[in-house]
Design a protein around this nucleic acid. Structure first.
Lengths: 151, 151
DNA sequence: TATTGTTATACTCTATAACTATA
DNA sequence: TATAGTTATAGAGTATAACAATA
């Protein structure tokens, strides 16, 4: 037994990660709302950036990578397209496929989102001792990678 | 500026905590589902345990502490009462108030939930170096306390 | 009149299923 | 016949608003 086993529910990492994660995500969502975005819109921008490095990805591939239904990608892409943040064009090689790509405006929007998230990070972590903060971020990065998130 | 500012969205703590938190909460929820419980049922059991130390709390107080609508507490308590995990009785001093209390079966159920969460913790953290794990858990506890969670 | 709990209703998020077009 | 995308529908989860009982 690696970890102590008679720990209170509220003292488990699972419980705390669930609550803290949803609170932090809520604060990020509040900031995004002022830009007319939901968290998953920001996620789609990030996924496009990480998948394509400037190229384009089909909606189905995006759905698989995000772990959401293809129908949700349609709605997310509709909205981002209406904001001018992503372009959508038919793949000439297979006209069933819609290729999504970040526009310059989309890149700028993604950077705004990152700046907002950085602001949340500062409020959350800035008062911690630097060593603790570094270790926490390193472990969190490892856990995120284990969940399949892009580095 | 305490933290570096040109960090990718997917590399922020806010983004990672949101995703990791919801994935981990999902795994916990899957385990709870086999016991006919949702995450918030477990949360209510934990809140009762932490608030009352054996006594009883009104539904409104519970709702405030959990940060949910009073109407949700009604539904959660209905279900837990049907499982025999909580008792509900009118406060003799103020007959508007329903006093919720953990039954012995409720205490046992809470401990089962804690054991399930501990299992999730082990899968998540057991492979980390002990020092990293300790620091991560200590920082997470601090973040949880800052969000108002009971220790 | 104010407060506690309850019920009725509505809203958000997301998935599943049905459909269209292309292959 | 199979696949990419889209649209229509449904379900889970939760809040808000209306209501009843008690203060």
């Amino acid at each position: 037994m690696l970890l102590v086993n008679d720990v209170k529910l509220t003292a488990t990492a699972a419980f705390r990660l669930g609550v803290v994660g949803s609170r932090v995500a809520g604060r990020f969502a509040d900031l995004l709302a002022e830009r007319d975005l939901k968290t998953k819109h920001a996620g789609l921008l990030a996924v496009l950036d990480s998948m394509t490095a400037g190229g384009a990805a089909s909606q189905l591939d995006v759905a698989k990578l995000m772990g959401v239904a293809p129908s949700l990608v349609v709605a997310l892409a509709d909205h981002l397209e209406s904001l001018g943040a992503v372009s959508r064009e038919r793949d000439p090689a297979d006209r069933r496929r819609q290729l999504l790509a970040l526009t310059p405006a989309g890149r700028a929007l993604l950077e705004e989102c990152a700046a907002l998230a950085n602001g949340v990070d500062e409020d959350l972590l800035a008062h911690l001792p630097r060593k603790d903060r570094d270790t926490f971020l390193r472990v969190l990065a490892r856990l995120a990678a284990a969940e399949g998130l892009p580095a």
